[in-house]
């Protein structure tokens, strides 16, 4: 297995890398050897991956996605606290807009996966492997070439080779991690009660309320 280095979203915004332009058809279909380099906007990393689905993969995914829509807990991603957003789409056909577009059929149904996250990339993939490996496996076992979730290097290599670079990316909160945002929202929820207590109670009582807040929220500040 080839060792791969991982880029980590930095603190400052950097221009995203340009899309590779295949010059020949042969190059276009050749397996790639790109390292996993997410697009980074501040501390926000973004990865887009297109995988080819096996013949019954799309049907399995529709059942699985319908199930997890009804029972979101099955997705199991909430506790990760490093993921802002994830989307999965099964792409069976391409939109047609008339000439000069060429009508074309996809050789396979595709799974489009896009993740927006805030963590160094390697620990992020590790979290997928060790934290929610079984859930990831249930989705991606439908794709050709999926190496499983036993090896971080194997999964990172798979994602790295199949990821498509962004041409322009933007995040409203590039400096904030998911953990920071969740903490801030928790603090904001308690804040209104603190303000009310400050207005309606005496100094001693307010001090008890405020120090209770600090004790509960010290990890969020």
């Amino acid at each position: 297995m080839v060792y791969r280095s991982f880029a980590t979203p930095g603190r400052t915004a950097v221009p995203v890398r340009a899309e590779r332009a295949p010059s020949r058809e042969a190059e276009a279909v050749a397996p790639r050897r790109a390292a996993l380099r997410p697009d980074a906007v501040g501390r926000t990393g973004m990865i887009t991956v297109l995988t080819a689905l096996k013949p019954l993969g799309a049907s399995w995914l529709r059942v699985l996605f319908a199930l997890t829509r009804r029972l979101p807990g099955l997705t199991g991603l909430g506790p990760l606290e490093s993921v802002h957003f994830i989307r999965w789409s099964v792409v069976g056909s391409l939109p047609y807009d008339g000439p000069p577009q060429v009508r074309e059929r996809l050789p396979h149904r595709l799974l489009l996966w896009e993740t927006v996250y805030s963590a160094p990339t390697e620990p992020y993939v590790e979290t997928f492997v060790y934290g929610v490996g079984d859930k990831v496996r249930k989705i991606w076992c439908t794709s050709h070439g999926f190496p499983g979730t036993r090896s971080v290097t194997g999964l990172a290599g798979y994602i790295g080779e199949l990821s498509v670079a962004g041409a322009h990316c933007w995040s409203a909160h590039p400096a904030a991690t998911v953990r920071t945002i969740l903490s801030a929202l928790d603090v904001a929820r308690e804040h209104r009660y603190l303000v009310r207590a400050a207005r309606t109670t005496g100094p001693a009582e307010f001090a008890v309320v405020y120090r209770g807040f600090l004790a509960r929220r010290q990890g969020d500040l």
């Binding site: 996605f65 829509r69 802002h84 994830i86 999965w88 789409s89 792409v91 945002i181």
Partner: peptide, 9 residues
């Protein structure tokens, strides 16, 4: 394109 599964923190 339809989004078949979605997660938001």
């Amino acid at each position: 394109l339809p989004v078949h599964r979605w997660f938001a923190a």
